[in-house]
Design a protein around this nucleic acid. Structure first.
Lengths: 337, 337
DNA sequence: CTGAAAGCGCTAACAA
DNA sequence: TTGTTAGCGCTTTCAG
């Protein structure tokens, strides 16, 4: 009947064969090939082995698009990252990469592909198509969150848990991190602690909260000089200003290693000894801090684990299982400062 | 005639509409919707505007899988990264993320999706499906290269250009970077230079080559003590050993900032002053080096640009255009050391 | 400028 | 255990 119309591109000999091709070669039907390649128990083990061998021999390549179209899903999770490294708020250090590593590892082994995007330019269609979305980056993702929610896509966010009640958020235990710093200072007998970091930043606010609460238990409350930015120089500038105004302090907890290093630099420039005169603790336990002279004590978090957790949460949501926000433990790595 | 068989899943009202749905609503055919949404000049501007408005209003979501199936391409580029952070060869620092940023930016704006993978576990199908592959990571990708080549997929590699003649490689000008370090030492009047780095590493070998050649122009040749690893402590250990055996040197060029920092630490521990007794230059210009005390001079390379270039090359190959290996400029950032 | 027909490669349902 | 049928949503012919 219907005469076959012109094909757009004749199947070239070099092309990878389709399941139908394999089926013909194996003398079975396409669906059997499909089942065999997916290790379905519905197919005879021998048949399966033969088909798999044949596929291998023929250089068969599975067509993901066809499956996704058929299944009405993309088997893809989009990871939205703030990648434009604004000078003042760079997503730098090993942190994002470790996070990505954990995510990718977990998702890949569950058969999902990881789509990396910054949600700028023409990224939208592929993010829309994703079965789920993971939001990384230091906040500023309010807009992205609304966008994704409007699409009705499952979503998991990395960041400050307390700030997004309605979202599934994975974050490290910033409050506990702050408390650890405070406890350390108390153990060292320090009595005039500083917190260095802009609390407008959600995670920083949590760190300050834990720090302040723990100090309050000892009848103390921290100085919180204004800090503008996240860089080494921002930290140095803030401490210089602080030394001008309120030079009486003997301990300093910075919301990031970068700020901590800036602080140390300023302190040394002004003739304060670290750690004799001022104890300093940073956050993130970056190689930068660890290799600094003096080596910086810092609150550590395991980003690879965090990535794995983010991945598990999004998988749960995609599969219709429930998922709650979760807080990862933090611990203090004591070095010299 | 053919009675419609049971649909697997009835089109739910909540589902995003298809082009066919839009077509019905707009009183046109599906193909017209397709053309309108793609800004085809074949469609009447008014019609197009109406259709686009309708799509927006209806919350239409483009089905990428369907298009890809039809087009027989995936509009995807796989980026294979070495993400398992082995202690000794971590892909750390901002470097890979900047590279990824450049890649993602360029590819996304060309309508391609960026698939992040480490080529372990179940990643193969989606990498196979990609229209092109970008290989990052510090070498050790020989196997991955062969794999991808066997699939006949276009491929671009980041790394040492001189090492892979048959591949399209983008790398920074490691030889020039080494030469810059040598020239700086000569300008400072140094006469006994060291190179710190394991030349088994392709990029390191190039750096040593440029360094050695430039020194040879002044009748000098560098000491090349054995180095085992890429970490701070590897650098420190190597320099300690060097000080035991051949303590006569006044300049040290390290193949990475990490090694350089280890070197500085060892030098200071052994009572050498930096930079008075020994000048040190690192490589990569990481924040780690920039904020060290003393701040580390280092060879800088622009990784975002490199990422963009990698993306352009792979796009060229995918579209059948030619592409050559290319070397990016490097420059020396002089700080205190 | 618009449309009708066909099919990309795969897999859920149903039937044998 | 295997096969038949149909169709996922899109876009390229080719014909108006």
């Amino acid at each position: 009947m219907s005469r076959p119309r012109a094909q757009r591109r004749k199947k070239e000999p070099g092309d990878s064969p389709t399941m139908a091709d394999l089926a013909k070669l194996a003398g079975v039907s396409a669906i059997t090939v499909s089942r065999a390649l997916r290790d379905s128990p519905l197919v005879n083990p021998e048949t399966r082995a033969q088909i798999k061998a044949l596929a291998e021999r023929q250089g068969y390549m599975f067509n993901i698009s066809a499956r996704n179209l058929r299944l009405r899903r993309s088997m893809t999770v989009a990871v939205v990252v703030e990648m434009t490294p604004t000078i003042e708020r760079q997503m730098s250090g090993p942190y994002p990469l470790d996070l990505l590593g954990g995510i990718s590892q977990e998702l890949t082994s569950s058969g999902y592909a990881v789509l990396l995007t910054s949600l700028q330019g023409g990224a939208l269609p592929s993010v829309q198509a994703a079965d789920g979305v993971i939001l990384l980056g230091q906040g500023a993702h309010e807009d992205a969150m609304h966008q994704v929610r409007r699409w009705g896509r499952p979503m998991v966010v990395w960041g400050a848990v307390s700030r997004h009640e309605s979202q599934v958020v994975v974050g490290s235990d910033n409050q506990r991190g702050g408390a650890l710093a405070a406890e350390r200072f108390m153990a060292l007998g320090r009595r005039q602690p500083v917190f260095l970091g802009d609390a407008a930043h959600g995670e920083f606010a949590e760190r300050l909260e834990g720090y302040g609460r723990a100090l309050a238990g000892h009848g103390l409350s921290p100085l919180t000089p204004p800090v503008h930015g996240l860089t080494v120089s921002a930290g140095a500038a803030a401490v210089h200003a602080l030394l001008d105004n309120q030079p009486q302090f003997d301990a300093l907890f910075a919301a990031s290693d970068l700020l901590a290093i800036g602080a140390i630099r300023a302190l040394i420039e002004r003739g304060r000894r670290v750690p004799e005169d001022v104890s300093v603790i940073g956050y993130d336990d970056t190689p930068l801090g660890a290799t600094y002279l003096p080596p910086l004590s810092s609150v550590h978090q395991n980003f690879t684990d965090a990535g794995v957790l983010l991945a598990r949460k999004i998988l749960a949501l995609i599969e219709g299982r429930p998922a709650q926000s979760e807080i990862l433990p933090t611990n203090l790595v004591v070095r010299v400062t």
